[in-house]
């Protein structure tokens, strides 16, 4: 059937791409666990991913917390349930919005940079040069980025959680007239350790996905500047989609029952 052939080709291409990505991920992870390690490179990547992402993650978190408080008030005021605002803000930020928004921001900032840097190294023969100098590109390029991203995303999410809750506090206290002590007490009372832990687990997984997509698309880029541009786009898009998909999966695992 002429209709089935293109569908089959697309399906086979999808399976092949999934297999390539899986192999790449396993190779990358195996190099994270085997010496030699490159502490200088890991440290450099930690600063790039963690420290330099603080402003963008912080800005995103504070405005999200502020909007959340404002919108919750608008809705809950209709049912005289304004006291639930603190719970809505803290649970939404720690469970969902903190990790997801930090993940998406880092995907845009770091995933794109990784794909562009490694992609440029690929098309300018720098990755081949690494191999000829007896240095495994997975160990030198991929493993430090995976380790740094998995370590730094949870730190960023802790920061985003605090800033996001603070954004909600600012609006609730200074615009909506809540008592500061009552707001903080309600926030603390509603917060369970699992809320924070689930967010941190998500953050570690999202960090892995962002670094994996950036490295994978950069490593396999070809065709010069156009290829590097395509790799960058693909890294951001695929990381963003995977973050949203894995967010659902992890949420279902933690809170599905």
């Amino acid at each position: 059937m002429p209709v089935l052939a293109p569908i089959g080709r697309v399906f086979l291409a999808f399976l092949a791409a999934t297999g390539r990505l899986g192999t790449f991920a396993m190779t990358g992870v195996s190099h994270c666990a085997r010496p030699p390690f490159f502490p200088r490179l890991i440290g450099h990547q930690m600063v790039e991913i963690g420290y330099f992402s603080l402003p963008v993650v912080g800005m995103t978190a504070i405005f999200t917390g502020m909007v959340l408080a404002l919108q919750s008030y608008t809705g809950f005021a209709r049912f005289n349930a304004e006291s639930a605002i603190a719970a809505v803000v803290v649970l939404s930020i720690t469970r969902e919005l903190g990790p997801v928004l930090a993940g998406l921001m880092v995907a845009g900032r770091i995933g794109a940079a990784m794909a562009a840097e490694i992609g440029t190294m690929r098309v300018t023969e720098q990755i081949d040069a690494l191999t000829t100098l007896s240095t495994n590109p997975f160990k030198y390029l991929v493993a430090p980025r995976l380790i740094a991203a998995v370590a730094m995303l949870p730190c960023l999410v802790v920061f985003a959680d605090i800033i996001g809750v603070f954004g909600g506090y600012l609006i609730s206290v200074y615009k909506l007239g809540f008592n500061p002590n009552t707001y903080l007490k309600l926030t603390w009372d509603f917060l369970e350790p699992l809320d924070v832990i689930s967010g941190l687990v998500k953050a570690a997984v999202f960090g892995f996905l962002v670094a994996l997509m950036g490295c994978y698309h950069g490593y396999h880029s070809k065709g010069g500047a156009q290829g590097v541009g395509l790799a960058t786009t693909n890294a951001v898009v695929s990381a963003s989609i995977l973050i949203l998909a894995f967010n659902y999966i992890i949420t279902a695992l933690f809170f599905g029952t």
């Binding site: 300018t124 023969e125 720098q126 081949d128 040069a129 690494l130």
Partner: peptide, 8 residues
């Protein structure tokens, strides 16, 4: 390498 392949 043809392009020298230096690590920038």
């Amino acid at each position: 390498f043809q392009s020298a392949g230096l690590f920038d």
